[in-house]
Nucleic acid binder design. Structure first.
Lengths: 128, 128
DNA sequence: ATACATGCAAACACTTTGCAGCACA
DNA sequence: TGTGCTGCAAAGTGTTTGCATGTAT
């Protein structure tokens, strides 16, 4: 495995994900970083987001509105997705680990992860 | 709302989803239907799959390998996704409803659905 | 007869990749 | 100094859409 370098772009992208607390998409992260580093390319943003996810610096939140979102918060938690506006909110669900042990999966399947996504309508959209 | 018609294509697509029990993608459903109806177009397959999902005839399973998968089995259940081969397996997880009620979501968020996807490696891939 | 549906191709959104030049270690 | 990284453009993947024609009701 190769050694990863500290480039200006990479640290700017990480800093951006950490500063945007609303689960931004790659596009939003790009639009924010390009303000401070006008020549940055979208490919660099995508490449670095993937790298940072691999290194465990950020989390990827896959949602059904197409684009992946990214999360600076590393503690185990879940998400609620508003299908009206596409926003993502944090959710806690205690006792999931207990429950996972009781889950009946396919024979000899090695369970590694459990992705939970709640869907519904957020309070802002309910008011409209 | 408009009335839905019974076309040959639509019933062939539904029949195909019901006959393929391995959570096929739109592409796989297309490849199967085109055998019996050579002029069918992929757009028709996509349009009908979406319609059948809307009508509650089949389920859509969104997974992170890109393509959506489809499920003929309507009872509430979950899925395990093998990230080595992309296969999907059925899973049961009792007591989820209980747990969902204890979940702490964002204020005034109207929870409608909960999508759970387990990830890991299936038995076939573990043997390789 | 009249909508709805089809087939085709083009458009679409998001993401990845090939490549030549650049820059961190 | 050398390999990893960047910017750019192009390609790739999965899905949707516009439109003229076809067909179920």
């Amino acid at each position: 495995m190769s050694i990863s370098r500290n480039t200006i772009q990479r640290s700017l992208i990480l800093q951006t994900v950490r500063s945007l607390h609303h689960h931004p998409t790659a596009e939003e992260i790009y639009r924010e970083t390009v303000k401070y580093h006008p020549n940055i390319s979208k490919a660099t943003v995508y490449r670095n987001l993937n790298l940072l996810v691999q290194q465990g610096e950020i989390l990827k939140v896959e949602v059904p509105d197409g684009a992946d979102h990214f999360d600076f918060k590393l503690q185990y938690h879940h998400h609620a997705y508003c299908h009206k506006c596409g926003s993502i909110y944090d959710m806690e669900m205690p006792a999931l680990e207990d429950m996972m042990e009781r889950a009946k999966g396919p024979q000899d399947f090695l369970l590694e992860e459990c992705n939970i996504l709640f869907r519904g309508v957020c309070s802002k959209c309910r008011q409209k």
